[in-house]
Write a protein that binds this DNA or RNA. Structure first.
Length: 759
DNA sequence: TTAGGGTTAG
């Protein structure tokens, strides 16, 4: 008994429960099951902690059907469906026969597995009970067996309003609008529940207009009707409509309940403004209303999205054992949103039951924070795991990661996976396919996907146009803009950005200027593109004048373009001007120092190169050691400065030495040139050079066969010497080489490069 | 004890 007392003290907090506890002790002494059952229903009402209710349950020496039923209800009330099923098993083992009260509870909790219970119910002779019958029918309807449900429905001789309503919801569940509507129209009588089912049905189909029409027609709306409409707006991204409907609801004198709060809070999250929710919270606090897990999770999410991670974490910690998978997922996403992948992963690994959203949140977290390799690795782990099956959302992240890496073979693996598993794609799924292919240098496949799409949105066009631009296919990009206008889709700022990039990459100066003039109010990115275009065309003074005319403060990208152009055209004066602005805007960014230093190097100003080096040291700016990636046979190989960890290291350095030799013979490299020099250990932290990409290129040359296309991936700002080296190889060995330099593709063939303007 | 509304990922 002292053991019992200790646990009870731990789990009880209210005085009600302490009173209950006294009764438990009393009654357990006598083993009276009836009293225990009554106490458990008190626990249900008071939302007592599960261990406490279980304690009461265990205190009865001879559990009967009544006791089991009350305990089952307790678990149902907490949505603890696993516990319901376990208790049912326990019940069977004890030899206690379930009755017509037990089956509806268990069937509901069993989910899909409830199908197995149907036979059980028949055998027990409860199939005709109206509650059991309805539960079985709901179960079939809910899990996609609408035909079976309908058969049961038709066989009923005394079907009642509840059965009609269940059948309608069943049709909405599988998106069968026609049958739902037919049933609705043929009903002998309707109640508010029938109407509400129609409102939520249309909301589920994302048809908010029809939902609203039905909502307006509901004769006597209940709070649930209002909630159905509110949630419809909230879940489909109509936050403003939700908030305004909420005020209508208050004016109509309807009392909001917890579901209402949830819809309102989640609308606040998407608006990024906790204001409305906070005033609600104050109200709830004054009335001492206890929040449930839904409200608390919605609040957690809201604070995370409005930038208050500490408050969000507080909600998470306070929820304790009441956390469900949604709570965990919301917290994981909160961390990935701010880039704290370690904490996110920690939670992900710790969470008791991961669902598809948990995996998707973590994979998307990696993909969106530049950890593409980890994203793909986790996706592959998910593909073989048993607890969740990847869906379209998973695919979007995985494809995006492959695209960012430029890993075509991995991308094709993902595509293969999605066809094998028959995952259907929506427009955004197709868009990510286009993104992946175009980022991986295969415009042919990107085009194919684009042409296969039945409906295209502005994102599809923009992805395609940006891809074409990166490949220097300017004319085709213009053709697409023409096509989208014909389809009635208006170009937006991203479209214009893509077009300007296309002009810049294809050297279409006049066309670019026309595009720029056609933009009603150009943004900073448009200016950056234009500076780039002018700069590449050698019109550096014009570029400078354009910057001076800008109506807004130029961002780093604008000066970056100018600096880059100055380096290409060896204009030290403008390069210094741009670099000085960049040192102000981004003092920590080593890139500007490196670019300026390269400019000095290219004009033979070695003293200035040295000066910049000293300056970096003085200001504590360190060149971040970058990684370069090359994909070969579906595996991504990583390289960094001075790297000798790769298994083919010997061969790689052999290729490098060979390149150096050939270039020297051809007169491309003198002893001062640092570019193809092997990197010494102590030089790793130094600024000059792009050594990791050289290793990557050497590896690619090593593994590719003569005549094949090789791809060197990710974040390459290939330097002049590398460029020359690849040109040379493409001529000497007759290879076609495609290199992705940041977001641009360079195709080397027979000693020439596709983007002549650049060099 | 049955039917309608709830939080998370792109």
């Amino acid at each position: 008994m002292s053991h019992l007392t200790t646990i009870a003290q731990k789990v009880t907090s209210s005085s009600h429960l302490r009173q209950l506890h006294a009764q438990v002790i009393l009654n357990s002494l006598h083993g009276r099951g009836y009293w225990a059952a009554l106490l458990i229903s008190h626990c249900t009402r008071l939302q007592a902690p599960p261990p406490y209710a279980r304690l009461v349950f265990d205190s009865a020496h001879q559990p009967n059907v009544l006791l089991f039923t009350s305990m089952l209800k307790f678990y149902t009330n907490l949505d603890a469906h696993g516990d319901v099923i376990n208790l049912f098993d326990e019940m069977m083992k004890c030899g206690v026969k379930p009755d017509a009260f037990v089956y509806p509870i268990v069937v509901k909790s069993a989910g899909k597995a409830g199908v197995a219970l149907h036979g059980h119910v028949m055998k027990a002779g409860h199939a005709c009970d109206r509650y059991v019958r309805n539960a079985i029918m709901c179960m079939y309807a809910k899990y996609g067996h609408t035909e079976v449900a309908r058969k049961l429905f038709d066989e009923m001789s005394d079907r009642n309003l509840e059965d009609w309503n269940s059948m309608i919801s069943g049709y909405w569940n599988c998106g069968n609008e026609i049958e739902a509507l037919r049933l609705f129209d043929s009903m002998p009588e309707k109640n508010v529940i029938t109407w509400t089912a129609m409102v939520s049905g249309y909301s589920k189909m994302k048809n908010l207009e029809s939902a609203r029409l039905y909502f307006n027609r509901v004769p006597e709306k209940s709070v649930v009707t209002w909630n159905a409409m509110l949630s419809g707006y909230a879940q489909n991204g109509f936050a403003e409509e939700a908030i305004s409907l909420f005020s209508e609801m208050l004016s109509a004198g309807v009392h909001p309940d917890k579901t209402t709060w949830v819809a309102v809070i989640s609308s606040c999250s998407s608006r990024g403004d906790p204001c409305v929710a906070e005033s609600l919270l104050k109200l709830l606090d004054e009335k001492c209303i206890r929040l449930n897990v839904f409200v608390q999770t919605a609040l957690l999410d809201m604070y995370a999205k409005c930038g208050n991670l500490a408050v969000a974490r507080n909600f998470f910690d306070e929820l304790g054992v009441r956390r469900n998978s949604v709570t965990w997922n919301a917290m994981i996403s909160a961390y990935t949103r701010v880039g704290d992948l370690t904490t996110a992963r920690n939670l992900f690994d710790r969470m008791p039951e991961k669902d598809v959203v948990s995996w998707n949140s973590m994979i998307a977290g990696y993909a969106q924070n530049g950890q593409s390799v980890l994203a793909i690795e986790l996706f592959k782990e998910m593909a073989i795991s048993k607890d969740s099956k990847p869906d379209e959302v998973t695919m979007v992240s995985a494809l995006s990661a492959c695209g960012h890496l430029g890993a075509l073979e991995s991308g094709k693996w993902v595509v293969n996976f999605l066809t094998r598993n028959q995952i259907t794609l929506s427009i955004s799924g197709y868009n990510s396919l286009i993104f992946m292919y175009s980022k991986c240098g295969s415009m042919k496949l990107a085009r194919k996907v684009f042409q296969e799409m039945k409906t295209r949105d502005v994102v599809a066009y923009n992805t395609m146009i940006t891809g074409l631009a990166a490949h220097g296919l300017g004319i085709e990009a213009f053709e697409l803009v023409h096509m989208m206008k014909e389809e009635g889709i208006l170009p937006d700022s991203i479209t214009h950005n893509g077009l300007l990039t296309a002009c810049s990459h294809a050297g279409l100066l006049e066309e670019g200027q026309k595009v720029f003039e056609s933009i009603r109010s150009p943004d900073t990115n448009h200016y950056a593109c234009m500076v780039d275009l002018l700069g590449r065309a050698g019109k550096l003074d014009e570029a400078k004048r354009l910057i001076e005319k800008m109506p807004m403060q130029p961002h780093a990208g604008v000066y970056g373009s100018l600096l880059n152009a100055s380096r290409v055209h060896r204009r030290v004066d403008l390069g210094e001007l741009a670099a000085n602005k960049l040192f102000e805007l981004e003092p920590e960014n080593p890139g500007s120092y490196v670019l300026l230093s390269n400019l000095y190097a290219s004009t033979g100003k070695w003293k200035d190169v040295e000066r910049i080096r000293e300056e970096m040291k003085k200001r504590g700016v360190k060149k971040t050691i970058g990684w370069s990636w090359v994909e070969h046979n579906g595996k991504v190989h990583k390289f960094r400065v001075g790297d000798r960890s790769h298994e083919q290291s010997k061969g790689i350095y052999g290729v490098l030495a060979e390149l150096k030799k050939r270039m020297r013979i051809a007169g491309f490299v003198d002893d001062k040139s640092c570019v193809l020099r092997d990197v010494e250990e102590e030089e790793k932290e130094e600024m000059v050079g792009t050594h990791s990409e050289k290793l990557a290129i050497a590896f690619a040359l090593l593994v590719s066969e003569t005549g094949t296309v090789i791809r060197v991936l990710k974040n390459l700002r290939i330097c002049w010497d590398c460029h020359t080296a690849i040109k040379m190889i493409s001529k000497l060995e007759g290879r076609e080489i495609i290199v992705r330099d940041n977001n641009r593709f360079h195709c080397f063939r027979n000693g020439l490069c596709s983007c002549k303007d650049y060099w």
